[in-house]
Amino acid sequence: MKPTKYELKAEPRDLGKKNSDTLRDEKRVPAVLYGPRVEENLHFSVAEIDLEKILSIPQTKLQKLELDGKEYDTLLKRVEFHPVTDRPVHADFYKLEDDIALSLNIPVVLVGTAKGVRESGGRVFQPVRRIMVRVLPENIPAQFEIDITALGVNQSLSVGDLDAEGIEILDDPSRTIVTIAPPKSGSAFSSAEDEEELVGAEEGEASEETADAAEAAE
């Protein structure tokens, strides 16, 4: 599936912290355009609402950027967010060249309900949401759709199982994309005794989770 190209109107901007802050007050996001054949980076701003629309779609983010009467085919490469307000602070656009391959992350979307969930009450975990690939601009996929309907409990799909013709996948083929975990034993807390047992049992799990998180964060 080809990704949708969003039309984005940009206005040139002046450089500097004060100018950028003024733009942000006007709900515009300072941005930059660069690429392998762009001699001098172009600085401009885009409307925050337009950028949010692009960010809210789980697809590869391609645009037709209109700046100073010229049109550029671009990829939204990177967006910086404010740590507290979560508003976009700055955006990087990459100018696509037809004959130059580029590396980018493609979103992974799960399709269907897994057999293990339907029949055994398993839980779907998707540790990988994006896959790093290297492609020519004309072959950029919108997303990788993975059908999980046949997956049973304790079964998983890895990067190597992806059907990606004409796309060079840079991630490790053994990396797990989705796994169906067995249902947790027991149900809701019924009595005080059960509750205590349950809390005790979960303690080990909590530390595991934290360790996983810390490891991945590094």
Binding site: R123, S187, A206, E209, T210
Partner: peptide, 20 residues
């Protein structure tokens, strides 16, 4: 917080604690 979350979710889903 962890106990409150796990009781509310009734053992569904997965919780990640991002602070240590």
């Amino acid at each position: 917080c962890r106990v409150a979350i796990s009781r509310s979710l009734q053992r569904e889903g997965k919780t990640f604690i991002r602070i240590f």
